[in-house]
Simulated assay, not measured.
Amino acid sequence: MRKGSINLTWLAAKIGATRQIFYPGRGNPEVHMLLAILNEYLKKSISTLPGGAPPNIENSRLQTELTLIKQENSTLKQKLRSARHELNMIHAGGIVLSDRS
């Protein structure tokens, strides 16, 4: 959540779109209606928490950081596999075509 409603940047990333589709005058009217329903649901969910407490912001930040670290880890693993393949090709006397700058 951000400022009392769903975080549009997060939601856009989850559905593979830009957050611009959520702004008035842009995107499908059905998207705006679904967003309003989702925000209403979130407000009701928060009000049922003990004392109406908002979700733990620090936990949300840690979850975001963890997601970014997982993405970076995946990218680095892919680069490592590529480097291992190139090394194996060099040892085998094969042709190495590198797309790195």
Rank of each mutant, 00 (worst) to 15 (best):
D99V: 11
T64V: 14
M89P: 03
L68I: 12
L87D: 08
S98Q: 13
T9L: 13
G27L: 06
A36Q: 10
Y23E: 09
Y41D: 03
S74A: 13
Q20H: 13
V31F: 02
A17C: 07
E72H: 00
L62T: 09
Y23Q: 14
K77H: 02
M1R: 06
S47A: 13
K14E: 01
L76G: 06
T48P: 10
N88L: 14
G27M: 08
N59W: 11
E58W: 13
S98A: 10
N7M: 05
Q63G: 03
L97N: 14
K79D: 03
L35M: 11
N88E: 12
L68C: 13
M33Q: 11
E86A: 02
L80A: 08
V96I: 09
H91V: 09
W10R: 06
L68S: 11
Y23T: 15
I46V: 13
L42I: 08
A36Y: 01
K43S: 09
I46S: 00
I57N: 09
R26A: 08
K44L: 09
Q20I: 07
N88G: 08
H85P: 03
A13W: 12
L62D: 08
E65F: 08
A36I: 06
E72Y: 01
Q63N: 14
E30K: 14
L11F: 07
A83I: 04
P50K: 14
I46K: 08
N73F: 06
S45V: 13
L87M: 12
L35S: 02
V31I: 15
I57S: 11
L34V: 07
A53M: 13
N7G: 02
L8A: 03
L68M: 09
K79C: 04
L11V: 05
R81H: 07
P29S: 04
H32F: 09
A13M: 10
L76S: 04
T67K: 12
H91F: 05
N73T: 11
T18M: 01
P24H: 08
G51F: 04
P55H: 13
A13Q: 10
L62W: 04
L62A: 14
I57H: 13
P55K: 15
K77M: 04
N59R: 15
R100M: 03
P29I: 01
P54S: 00
R2H: 08
H85V: 04
L8Q: 06
W10Y: 15
S98W: 02
K44N: 05
N56Q: 15
V31N: 03
H85N: 15
H91A: 12
I46Y: 03
K44T: 06
T48I: 11
E30C: 09
T9G: 14
K70M: 10
G52C: 02
G25V: 10
S98T: 05
T48V: 12
A17F: 07
V96C: 07
E72F: 00
R2C: 01
K14F: 12
A12P: 03
L66R: 12
M1F: 02
R2V: 05
R81T: 03
G51K: 07
T67D: 07
W10M: 07
M33V: 11
